[in-house]
Computed example of a mutant assay.
Amino acid sequence: MLQPSDIILEEGDIVVVEARDTEFFYTGGLLHGGQFPIPRDYDLDGVGAMAIAGQGLGAAGQSPGGGGMLGGGFAGASPTQLYVIRTTPCGDQFNIAVDLNKALNDNSERLMVQPGDTLILRYKPCEELVNFSLVTFFTYGITELFRN
């Protein structure tokens, strides 16, 4: 059992506080690729991590890694599929899909980011189709309208 004399510091006692390694998360896909520190003072969810990485929700065209700005400056669909790649203590990896449309309106859909997580932002297939259709129309459709 500990006695008060065991825990009271005396003159000449040395206290060692070990440094805590900085914990990081990583980003890729339509998010600017990088390594970002996880804040120590509060929990960080996927939406907050995207903001730290420089991509807000619904920010079409803001992403340095691609984004939703179509040729000629026409905004298309924003990417709303976030994949979190997480490593287990055994070294295995698994993917967690986060629908950002749901996460925007429901806090229970917001996954907490853990050290070592990799966040990959991408378009859903329907968003890809919308963007492809817009690019095709504005690239070829308008040209054909004014051809004659």
Rank of each mutant, 00 (worst) to 15 (best):
R20Y: 01
A97R: 15
N131D: 13
V17M: 09
G141W: 11
I142E: 02
I120F: 14
I8N: 12
G91H: 10
I142N: 02
G72N: 05
L100W: 08
E23Q: 15
G58F: 08
N105R: 14
I38W: 03
A75Q: 12
C90F: 08
V15D: 02
T88Q: 15
E127S: 05
N95H: 10
T139S: 15
L121G: 07
Q3I: 00
A77F: 02
E11L: 11
P37W: 08
D13K: 06
Y26C: 02
G91S: 09
G56H: 06
G61T: 02
A49Y: 00
V17K: 11
S133T: 13
T88M: 14
S63K: 06
R122K: 15
S78L: 01
T80A: 11
N105K: 14
F146T: 13
I96L: 12
I8Q: 14
V47P: 05
G68R: 07
F74G: 04
T80Y: 09
Q114H: 12
L104W: 09
G116P: 10
D43K: 10
L104E: 13
V84T: 05
E144K: 08
I14N: 03
R122E: 14
Q35E: 13
Y140N: 06
A19V: 00
V130C: 10
P125Y: 03
Y140R: 10
